[in-house]
Write a protein that binds this DNA or RNA. Structure first.
Lengths: 227, 227
DNA sequence: GGTTGACGCAAACACTTGTTTGAAACTAGC
DNA sequence: GCTAGTTTCAAACAAGTGTTTGCGTCAACC
């Protein structure tokens, strides 16, 4: 028997053969189901049935249901933050040491998330994970959230430089708002469809991205009012 | 015995004596716990213990746990939409038949929600309820969501008039974004606090409201780019 | 060819879940 | 003081939960 939930993490798990790769199949099913329904409402029996694996597979490969949720979140967060960092770095290189245009910074922040959501709507999982981590979840979960915020921190300085009219505190607040728009973009697209009488739906990815970027860039650039 | 979950709804339940008023106590506890943790993760035993009532009280007064969630959501939605409608009507009266200023429309839309969240952070419940209604929830839940969107519809025309540079479709999209900012304002304030190193927290209500309104008004007013 | 370790599988485990029951306690109305 | 209707309560119910167990299977290695 193998010890519970060991991480080999040595790269991206080559998957040399056409074998189903149980661990990854479980992660995929969990990501989808947890986002569609909710973590607590999805039973391991339902999950493993959807994934086409045995009931005991989750506890064997991940150790527990809680650990599976953490693993799901980690996989998504790593991919997302890696892509964000790459885009931001490229923008900074294009700027040649100066401050990149605000629009490019914002695109580096939210384009990966929107792209990711087109296939996996993982964003719907974020709020759930926050509640889980602050509630009965293991301490690991809270640490992961903090690490995720750490990656976000990478964007503060560029944003502050691109928004010289704002005090630092306001930059934090508005970054918070931007993340809000991003997170609830897909959590209920049904509302947008109902609201617009079917006029608005998820057309192509660049169009949606442009719409969101237009909105939040204008919000970020809003003048600062002393309250 | 009383039939399950009858609605007397005749006003606001006078509560003439100092009796705990079981039904309301349960709603309060459920609103708080469902928002803090999640609907599925809170057991009726935990909930009734927190509310200081007997375990069977939920099934007696509401019929089932599902029906309780619907009741919680309904109470909040009714209060919120009533207040929104009142503020919008007042703004329209001030405008004397013309179009109210964009800022006042936006304030009518989001100020009640922010005010409400200061005491009950019900907004964290919205996303959960959406997932519940689309998933295993009873058809009642879905109807309630649609009715909620109906109330939102009330804001479309005023917004469209105040934003003549936008085609109707864009108004829908941006209204969707505004709701996004509103909903994830409080869902994880912890992130904002961590991100800002404790600089940003929930100070007074008017300051937070002003910040949000500044942001979304600028976003709404952003020029329309043809994509 | 035999042995070792990793993995899949069906069955069972101990426990919690939402819900129901039947009787007790309480509150008016006459 | 009695009765009828409403609400509370402890106890039990059946069903579902996450987890563990023990054995079977397969591939790799000396």
């Amino acid at each position: 028997m193998k010890a519970e939930a060991e991480q080999k993490e040595g790269g991206t798990a080559p998957a040399d053969s056409a074998r189903p790769d149980t661990k990854e199949v479980i992660l995929d099913a969990a990501e989808r189901l947890f986002a569609e329904k909710s973590y607590a409402s999805v039973s391991l029996r339902e999950l493993t049935a959807a994934a086409g694996v045995n009931l005991a597979a989750v506890n064997y490969h991940f150790g527990s249901k809680d650990a599976l949720l953490v693993a799901v979140f980690r996989r998504g967060a790593v991919a997302l933050n890696r892509e964000r960092a790459r885009l931001l770095r490229e923008a900074e290189e294009r700027a040649g040491g100066g401050t990149p245009p605000l629009r490019e910074i914002v695109e580096a922040l939210i384009a990966p998330a929107i792209r990711y959501s087109f296939t996996s709507n993982r964003l719907a999982l974020y709020n759930q994970f926050v509640a889980f981590a602050r509630g009965d979840g293991p301490p690991e979960a809270r640490e992961m959230l903090d690490k995720d915020v750490g990656h976000l921190q990478r964007f503060v300085l560029p944003l502050a430089r691109a928004l010289p009219h704002l005090p630092q505190q306001e930059v934090y607040w508005r970054l918070h708002f931007v993340m809000g728009v991003q997170h609830s973009l897909y959590t209920d697209m049904k509302r947008l469809e109902t609201l617009s009488g079917g006029q608005c739906h998820l057309d192509n990815l660049p169009a949606v991205t442009a719409r969101v970027v237009d909105f939040v860039v204008a919000g970020l650039e809003a003048p600062h009012r002393v309250v």
